[in-house]
Computed example of a mutant assay.
Amino acid sequence: MASKPMTKTQLVAALAEEGDMDKKAAGAALEGLISIITREVSGGGAVTLPGVGKIYCRERPARTVRNPATGEQIQKDADKVVKMTIAKALKDSVNG
């Protein structure tokens, strides 16, 4: 079984160590990156993180879904969903 996911605190500490900076600067850099990605994707664009993947927004058409509790068919409106395509380099490093 896989280990627990890395927390934000652990990520900031690792980023600070890797980038040879203090934790405050690493936290600000992470918050800035999150802000940029959020702004770009919510505006309909996409962000490519080299070696990691591409984050983008995709529109889903209106469709009929089933309520699992009652079995009733419900019409669901069109909506948007955030997707991520993983980079080949990351896939290869995990599988190789």
Rank of each mutant, 00 (worst) to 15 (best):
A2K: 06
E40P: 03
A89N: 03
T9N: 12
R58Y: 11
A87T: 00
R63D: 07
T48V: 13
S42H: 13
A69I: 04
A69T: 09
L15K: 12
R66M: 00
L33W: 06
L30Y: 05
E59V: 14
G43A: 13
L49D: 06
L30V: 09
I74A: 05
I55A: 10
G71Q: 03
M6E: 08
D20E: 10
K83Q: 11
A69E: 06
L30N: 01
N95T: 05
K80L: 09
G53C: 02
R39T: 10
R66C: 00
D77Y: 03
A29P: 10
A16M: 08
G96L: 07
D22S: 02
D77W: 00
K88A: 04
M1P: 01
V41D: 06
C57N: 13
E59T: 13
E17D: 13
P50T: 05
T7I: 13
A46I: 08
R60C: 04
V94F: 02
E18N: 15
A14V: 12
S93H: 06
E40L: 10
A29M: 05
V65E: 11
A89I: 01
K80W: 06
K80T: 07
S3Q: 12
P5L: 14
T7D: 09
I86V: 09
C57M: 15
A13N: 10
T7V: 12
G27K: 00
G44K: 08
S93N: 11
G71Y: 01
I55Y: 02
A78D: 08
G45P: 00
K80N: 09
K24F: 15
G51N: 02
S3V: 14
P68I: 03
S35C: 13
E18L: 15
Q75L: 03
A14K: 15
Q73T: 07
K83N: 09
K23W: 06
A28D: 07
Q75G: 05
A46W: 02
L11C: 09
I37A: 03
E59S: 14
G27Y: 04
P50Q: 02
K54A: 01
